[in-house]
């Protein structure tokens, strides 16, 4: 018996042992997959090593004061990125709040039998098209459409509710709110698409069982479908947040590029990605190490967001069991 598989004497069977070619192809494919995974890991490690290595001099020079500092002034060799960290988190969370709400609503609307399937497919395509629009177009659209459109409302809010810290300053043009609104639209397709997949993955039986027990359409959606798909929808939100944190071009155009920490939705702010994009073109060696340090911080923030996201998902999965 030196054959790899025992051949059973069945005359009318279509089963056969794999041929030598099939075995080779199988092994080859597996090797290729391993290589792919290995290359991705290598790429991430290389990125971290490269950025980290270049950031080390900056880290030694500025230490934690870099993260806690609020002044960015190359003239006096003062570098602090707290305003940029603040702006990054503030704009991303705001965008997640808006984009997440509408994204999940859209996913429900498109998967829970509100529309005939063909029409739903058309809407889905339109939402996916949003993901194909270049960032710079979003930026221009923000400047020429969003800012003028929200200005009357922003002025009114500032005048009547100006005592609230959120409306403390008036909207002069580029600022946190227009940036967050455009960002929300940019992360919408991601959130909507992944949430739809999560909702569609719920077995039909579950929904039918809910109807069978006398649940209304909305009861079935809110009390059965959404909780069942919660893990996937949460994953969609984490993905969206990750994208919002790293978005650069549109934000560089819309956020106002002003280093200050303010709760006000209307004041100009800055984000880490915008800071990097605007300062890199003519950075000297002294500035490159500082910017590398800042990109390391941005990577760390994204990493923490993803870790927190996946651990919450893990916990909710275990809780469900």
């Amino acid at each position: 018996m030196n054959k790899p598989f025992a051949v059973l004497p069945l005359h009318d069977s279509v089963c056969q042992p794999p041929t030598a070619t099939q075995l080779v192809v199988d092994r080859g494919f597996r090797g290729l997959c391993h290589l792919g995974v290995f290359l991705i890991l290598l790429l991430v490690v290389a990125l971290v090593v490269e950025i980290g290595g270049k950031a080390v001099p900056g880290m030694q020079k500025y230490g934690t004061g870099f993260i806690a500092g609020t002044v960015w002034d190359p003239n006096q060799l003062q570098y602090g990125i707290l305003p940029a960290i603040w702006g990054t988190l503030y704009s991303s969370l705001l965008a997640l709040l808006i984009g997440g709400f509408f994204g999940v609503m859209m996913a429900i609307f498109l998967t829970q039998d509100f529309l005939p399937p063909r029409l739903a497919a058309v809407f889905r395509t339109i939402i996916e098209l949003l993901a194909a629009i270049p960032s710079v177009v979003y930026g221009l659209w923000g400047i020429f459409v969003v800012i003028p459109a929200i200005r009357p409302l922003a002025d009114w809010l500032h005048q009547t509710l100006g005592w609230l810290p959120f409306f403390k300053s008036s909207l002069s043009g580029p600022g946190l709110l227009p940036a967050a609104l455009v960002l929300a639209i940019m992360i919408l397709p991601t959130i909507a698409a992944v949430s739809q997949d999560a909702l569609r993955a719920v077995p039909l039986k579950t929904k039918q069982a809910a109807y069978g027990m006398g649940a209304t359409h909305w009861e079935a959606i809110l009390k059965v479908m959404l909780p069942t798909a919660a893990t996937g929808i949460f994953g969609a939100l984490v993905l969206g947040l990750g994208r919002a944190l790293g978005e650069t071009m549109a934000l560089a155009m819309l956020v106002g590029n002003s280093n200050q920490i303010s709760l006000s939705l209307f004041s100009p702010a800055n984000t880490l990605a915008a800071l990097l994009a605007l300062n890199f073109p003519e950075a000297g060696p002294a500035e490159v190490e500082v910017l590398m340090y800042a990109s390391l911080v941005l990577m760390l923030i994204t990493l923490v967001v993803n870790l927190v996201g996946s651990s919450i998902m893990l916990m909710s999965q275990q809780g469900a069991k």
């Binding site: 609020t70 002034d73 006096q76 400047i143 106002g256 002003s258 280093n259 200050q260 605007l278 073109p281």
Partner: peptide
């Protein structure tokens, strides 16, 4: 060194465009 809250942009054309779109600037 500019005051805190100053919008910082690149190039003469950048400043002109930013002022054009920012009321009160």
């Amino acid at each position: 060194s500019w005051a805190a809250g100053t919008m910082l942009v690149r190039g003469n054309e950048g400043v002109a465009a930013r002022v054009k779109m920012t009321v009160g600037s």
